[in-house]
């Protein structure tokens, strides 16, 4: 029996008066990939962003319910968002490397945390870039600007940047939707490499992607969690009619 690393209970989220999440109960085991799928506006990205409190940045958002990371309440009054986001990293839809060198991008979190040991930083850069499966492509250009890379490479550098602060959970918000198919499949391969070491939660519009990489898949619609199960079951034998309609392309 695996440990549950992240649990959400009766999670409601309101943008002003509009209820965007209507009582989500969803738990995540340690390690492995969970995909969140569903039609646009179903709340899957909103849900993802509650998990490392990125919704805090948006005014007028109210959240009720409980999210616990390793047993401690993420929304407790004394919760430290900075620490939370170190342990629960996030990769965005649009690759967003900082306008600095590849090397600096990867070690940014560590350097700001005060790490100065050059050898250690070098080691972290290599390890993270290798884990993100982009090392071979960038190892000769580490001190050139990350903005000169292709979109797919930038996204993998962004993944490496998150890995470098050694989080336990990695959230990915449609990480391949701005990329071409070749880059997308490289990102997928990267994630498959990481699934044994990290808990990965990925929002995706691409059903094939979910079926290719996810161990578990959760289907969202209209702010509700309709169904969550092993990916195989969701795609081959969904319990819910709405899931089946969505999977078979009848809407969405």
């Amino acid at each position: 029996m695996k440990e549950e690393i992240l649990t959400t209970q009766d999670l409601h989220l309101y943008y002003g008066d509009k209820e965007a999440l209507k009582g989500i109960n969803l738990n995540f085991d340690e390690k492995g990939i969970t995909a969140l799928i569903g039609p646009s506006g179903c709340g899957k990205s909103t849900y993802l962003r509650t998990l490392n409190r990125m919704n805090d940045l948006i005014p007028n958002v109210t959240i009720t319910g409980t999210i616990k990371f390793k047993g401690s309440d993420l929304y407790a009054p004394n919760a430290d968002t900075v620490q939370i986001r170190k342990e629960i990293g996030m990769v965005f839809q649009q690759p967003n490397p900082f306008p600095f060198s590849i090397y600096d991008n990867v070690i940014y979190g560590l350097r700001i945390a005060g790490e100065k040991d050059k050898e250690k930083l070098d080691a972290v850069v290599e390890k993270s870039l290798r884990q993100a499966a982009v090392w071979d492509e960038v190892k000769d250009h580490l001190h050139e600007s990350a903005l000169a890379l292709s979109g797919g490479q930038q996204q993998r550098v962004c993944i490496a940047r998150v890995l470098a602060v050694s989080p336990e959970i990695i959230l990915l918000d449609e990480p391949t939707s701005a990329l071409d198919p070749v880059s997308s499949s490289q990102i997928e391969a990267t994630l498959l490499n990481l699934r044994h070491d990290y808990t990965i939660i990925i929002v995706t519009h691409n059903l094939q992607q979910a079926s290719r990489i996810a161990d578990r898949t959760a289907f969202f619609m209209n702010g509700e969690l309709i169904e969550v199960d092993q990916t195989k079951n969701i795609f081959m034998n969904p319990a819910n009619k709405q899931t089946e309609d969505y999977i078979s392309g009848r809407f969405g």
């Binding site: 490392n52 990125m54 940045l57 900075v82 620490q83 939370i84 986001r85 170190k86 342990e87 990293g89 996030m90 965005f92 967003n96 490397p97 900082f98 940014y108 979190g109 700001i112 962004c158 940047r161 998150v162 602060v165």
Partner: peptide
């Protein structure tokens, strides 16, 4: 860029 920084635990 701001989100990237914050999401990194800065």
């Amino acid at each position: 860029q701001r989100e990237g920084g914050l999401a990194l635990g800065l």
